[in-house]
Nucleic acid binder design. Structure first.
Ligand code: ZN
Ligand code: ZN
Length: 365
DNA sequence: TCGGTCGGACATTCAACGAA
DNA sequence: TCGTTGAATGTCCGACCGAG
């Protein structure tokens, strides 16, 4: 959170290189052996016009160990391609490839908390001359918990978040709805769900006039309690908006509605609400559980729990734009995968009932 | 030649740990 | 409370490959 806010400060185009050099220290302080000559390693990779390496002097090539600089947050395109990014948005690589409309920061995973690490080994202060500084393997402690690494070949296609909001006991006045930033967020093991796949997404065919094509012909299972499913083949015309909605949202016994989320809509007015990528829930006077499906997450990454929370705001979207559901919303498409960041939540009244709405952020509009 | 893919080295983050 | 530890997490080098 803190780092997000720090790193996303200003991207003011046209001076991205300079900025990146300012934001990213080219050399770590502990590495005194590196030459300060080429502090522009930000671009020693592709289309490099700078005499970055190996020209000046090459001391034995072994202990050169030039420290690699990296951006704090690569854009989704560079991340996916494992290529060097820069702080500018769009970044230079995306500009070069003509994919600036999908150049935005990749979402970050929230680090796990609460696990035991075991005692630390003391760092030997005695100078051990070039005994291998690597830790001896048999000394490494076995972790108390092993994190399930989800390899790429078994990448999940669904990411599910359970948001448990427990209002403080009895009196939760309607005038002050609980802020969800204090809610406890769980990541459910996303392996078992196949929602959506790259082929089951809606077709991303935004243009200002033509109909969008819902590209889902299969049943989409999404996690609810109990599990249920929905079809995404409905389209509805609401005034002059075309709205794609799940065939049937799931409603639990507490009258909470769960939308499978990968419906989209096209809105060329300034009046309609934004039902997409949102769930609604009545204001809790009780403890309840919400489920959020996020099919728009970038599935090309390893399994990363999607954790919408207050503060995942639009500062990390291109051009610092905020989601505005009164405008046209276009989802970015990255190689068949939509990527989004839920960054906004809002309490709205709907027929007298308060509803919490979550909105994606990194939509283009 | 250029862009895409990807294994894995390299860099960063930050919660747990532990000494003060 | 605060510095250290080190696993988790992210970046991207460089090799490889296919298309044009
Ligand atoms: Zn980039
Ligand atoms: Zn980019």
């Amino acid at each position: 959170m803190k780092s997000l806010l720090e790193t996303t400060t200003v991207y003011d185009n046209n001076n991205s290189l300079l900025q990146s050099n300012m934001l990213v220290t080219p050399y770590a302080t502990k590495d005194a052996t590196t030459s300060p000559l080429s502090n522009d390693e930000n671009y020693n990779n592709e289309n490099d016009t700078l005499p970055s390496t190996s020209l000046t002097f090459s001391p034995s090539k072994k202990n050169v160990s030039k420290r690699r600089s990296q951006v704090k947050n690569a854009c989704v395109n560079c991340q996916k391609a494992c290529k060097k990014c820069d702080e500018g948005r769009p970044c230079q690589r995306c500009i070069k490839l003509g994919i600036t409309d999908t150049c935005f920061n990749s979402p970050r995973k929230e680090r796990k908390k609460g696990f035991k690490r075991g005692p630390y080994r003391k760092k030997s202060t005695t100078s051990q001359p070039n005994i291998s500084p690597k830790k001896d393997v048999q000394d490494v402690m076995s972790p108390l918990f092993t994190t399930t690494i989800i390899k790429k070949e078994q990448k999940p296609t669904s990411l599910t978040i359970i948001t448990t909001v427990s209002s403080s006991s009895s009196s939760s006045s309607l005038s002050s709805p609980p802020v969800n930033s204090d809610s406890t967020l769980y990541a459910v093991n996303p392996v078992d769900y196949d929602f959506p796949t790259t082929t089951s997404k809606f077709n991303h065919s935004f243009d200002e006039t033509s109909l969008q094509t819902q590209f889902m012909t299969s049943t989409n299972n999404y996690t609810t309690t109990p599990p249920t499913s929905s079809y995404y083949n409905n389209s509805t015309i609401i005034s002059n908006n075309i709205s794609y909605q799940p065939y049937q949202p799931y409603q639990n016994s507490s009258s909470e509605y769960y939308y499978p989320n990968n419906n989209t809509y096209y809105d060329n007015t300034t009046t309609s609400s934004s039902p997409e990528d949102s769930f609604t829930a009545s204001l809790p006077n009780w403890s309840y559980t919400d489920l959020i499906e996020n099919p728009l997450y970038n599935h090309t990454q390893n399994a990363s729990p999607f954790v919408p929370k207050l503060g995942d705001n639009a500062l990390i979207t291109p051009n610092n734009k905020r989601q505005n559901y009164e405008t046209n919303n276009k989802y970015d498409l990255v190689d068949g995968n939509n990527t989004t960041i839920f960054n906004d939540q809002q309490w709205l009244t709907n027929g007298g009932a308060l509803e919490m709405h979550y909105y994606p952020s990194n939509v283009m509009y």
